[in-house]
Each structure stands twice: as structure tokens, then as C-alpha cells.
Design a binder for these strands. Structure first.
Lengths: 208, 208
DNA sequence: CCGTGTGAATGGCTTCACAGCC
DNA sequence: GGCTGTGAAGCCATTCACACGG
């Protein structure tokens, strides 16, 4: 049980959660830090250290109960409660998101928004799509924790500003363009091109 | 000019590149480490340190020439040459990728693959889609650096094994399930759900 | 004079190694 | 006996502060 938790630890926690979900699907009940470490390609002491920031979840001599650990991590991440999400921009990326099967029921997309009137009024995977001009009203009337921005590059700035002004505190963007948001708003990115570039770099360092 | 480059530096390099691309679009020619730092929300000394691992790209008293710096970073990342990519699985995610407009011409998707015979023979965004059973042959006949896996969860394992056996050395997966690959193969993930979980965590630490 | 590049110092993440408990 | 949880050590990334060059 420690003081300050490094951000990298949180990122690894999500990785552990994916591994644990996979293990329970395969009927596994208990896991050792060593096993979790191997699947995540890190050291077992780091796994134990990461988990120890939040409590004593393991049993000495035995390991970790997978169901218990999953629930603990969900609790730490704040996805044991329901997080209502919205998606802005129902193009190719937006459609992927509306069809996304989340492993955790806490993450729930409850609406999509698009400027195209043709798309408004329809449902995708059971999720209603509204016209863009209903955005602010919807955010205020519903309990929106997180918004995902999947609009074209040149519309990102405007959309983010509208989200911030409507009180959204967490935004995930698919377009990696620099945006300034207030201190109390968290902004992160899904960086497909960057990930590919990092792979390219690693190939290069291996002489390929 | 330093010895070993931390992996985080490479990740930040891709971020700098996005910022620089954005700046040149807006007609900017020269940038200070301080400006780059501000848009990336890090310290200016870290920007300078990151760049100094690879050479003296700046001009003392003046800053960095944006075009020069872009080219240097592309060179470091190994995307100054052409990287031929393929996408396996042409569902929603696969379609996003084939339609993806890369900022860097070095990254080039040259084919898609799918098990569905209906999809084979068509083109998406000018990129040919082949039947899955042509995968190995195509990899061997073309110069494939990187493969992107966008198949359903339960097919990932098999696809990754086939890629590895065909000689692919870098794989980007959209399904975050644990896979073992040989030492000389780089595997990374696009983790949409994990990013959302991290946002949820940050909201929670802020009392939301 | 101004901003980069970099030794030196700092701070924080990871590993080590073992005490404690099942 | 075996594995977790954790002080202490080690190591590596970041910051500091200033010499250097335009």
C-alpha cells in the first residue's frame, strides 16, 4: 500500500485487466504474478509493485484470485460504475466505435452525433444517432463522462471547444492535432499512425 | 548526441512530428523548443534532450527549421523510405485503415485480406482486397514491413502465427489479447478500451 | 542577447532480495 | 515450500543551469 501511483502503473493495470479477462474466458481461476508478468512481458516484481499501490489483493504462497483481481482493477479504474460515452462523428471511425464490444459493461456508448442529417434519426448497433446541433442539449441532460471525437481533422478544434463548454471533462480524440483544453479537462489520443511509426523505428533499429 | 535512446523519446518524436506537420500547414517556418514543448505539454529542456539524442538539428539563438526537423524525424523513424503495409480483416476497423489518410507518404497500405469471398476482388480507396488464402504468397512476393491485424478476437491468434511464419517482423493489433511472438518480431496494440479506462481513472481521481 | 545542447543533479520507476504468511 | 508485499538499492529519465554559438 503506497503513496503516489505512477501513470505508467495505470496503463499497465489496463493491460493486466485484458489478460485477466482472457484468462477467465479460458476457465483459469488463480494467477501468479510471474504468469501475469510473462504474458505482459514485464517482471513479476513490477506486477506485484503495481498492484501493491492499491492494496493486498494476493494470497501469499498461492497467487491472485482472478475474479477478485478483475473486480479490484475495475474499481481502481472507475469502471465498476457506469460511464456514459458519446461519439461525435459517425464516419468510418465512429461506426467502429458504435459497434465496439467493450469487455467492461461500465463503458457504455449511449449516443452518436453527426452533422449529416441523413445519419440523424438512425440507429447503429442499437445506439441512436442524433444531429450535431443536439449535442450540447444531450450532454447537459444526460450524465456524460467521456466524449470520443471521430470527426475530420479540420472539425476537431470546434467540436472539442463545444464539448468543453458543455462540461465534458474527458475527451478521446482520433485525430492527433494539438488542442489546448482547460486544466480540469483530460484529453488523450488514439494514435494509429504514431504506433505504426514506432514499429517502423523498431524495424529500422533491427536493420530492416 | 547521446548513447542510448529511451523508448519514451521515440513516442514523443511521433508527437513532435504531428505538431510540426500541423505548424507547416499553418505556414510556420521556425519553431522554438519552448513552443513545441507547450503544444506537447512537456518541458522545453526535454524537447531539446530528445532531439539531441540524434544530432544537432537546431540553430542556437534561433530555434529549429520546421521542414528540416520534420525530415530528420522521419529519417529517425524510418519512414523516409517506403513501408508497405497490409491489413488483415476488412470489417469496420479494416475499412477505417484502408481509408486512412496518412500524414507521411512512407506509410503505404498496399493490400487488404479477408476470409469473406464477397470482399475479395474489390477495391477500397483504391487498395485491392484479396482472399485470406492469398496472404502468405502476397507477403513473400511483396516487401511487407508491417501487418495490421483487424480480425475478430478469436481469429487473432491464428492470423498472427501465419504472419510470423511468413516472415512479417512488425504487427499492429486492434484486439488486445495476449499473444506470444518470437524475439525478433515486434507486436504492438491500438488500445481503444484501455485509453477509455485511463480516462475513467483520471475522472475518478478528480472526484467524478 | 537569445535559444540550443549538455554535464551534473535530481527525482522517480524498476529491480533486488528477503521477511512474512499461507 | 512457495509466493506475495516491500524496504533498500540501482538505474534511468527528467530537470537544472550554464557554456557555446549565431
Amino acid at each position: 500500500m503506497k503513496e503516489v501511483t505512477p501513470e505508467v502503473t495505470i496503463r499497465r493495470l489496463t493491460r493486466y485487466l485484458r489478460c485477466l479477462e482472457f484468462m477467465s474466458e479460458n476457465g483459469k481461476k488463480v494467477v501468479l504474478s510471474k504468469e501475469l508478468a510473462k504474458t505482459c512481458k514485464i517482471s513479476s516484481s513490477l506486477v506485484r509493485r503495481d498492484l501493491s499501490y492499491f492494496g493486498d489483493f494476493g494470497v501469499k504462497g498461492t497467487g491472485y484470485d482472478i475474479e477478485v483481481l478483475k473486480q479490484k482493477i475495475r474499481n481502481i479504474l472507475g469502471i465498476d460504475r457506469t460511464r456514459n460515452l458519446i461519439v461525435i462523428g459517425i464516419g468510418n471511425v465512429g461506426r467502429v466505435l458504435l459497434n465496439y464490444q467493450f469487455m467492461n459493461p461500465g463503458l457504455r456508448i449511449i449516443a452518436g452525433f453527426d452533422k449529416d442529417p441523413q445519419k440523424a434519426g438512425k440507429k447503429i448497433n442499437g445506439i441512436p444517432v442524433y444531429h450535431d446541433d443536439k449535442l450540447e442539449e444531450f450532454i447537459k441532460n444526460n450524465n456524460i463522462s467521456i466524449a470520443v471525437v471521430a470527426v475530420p481533422r479540420d472539425a476537431v478544434h470546434e467540436v472539442v471547444n463545444r464539448l468543453v463548454n458543455s462540461g465534458v471533462k474527458a475527451i478521446l480524440s482520433f485525430a492527433l492535432i494539438p488542442i489546448q483544453v482547460p486544466e480540469d479537462v483530460v484529453l488523450s489520443y488514439v494514435e494509429i499512425e504514431s504506433e505504426l511509426e514506432i514499429l517502423s523505428y523498431k524495424l529500422k533499429t533491427r536493420g530492416l
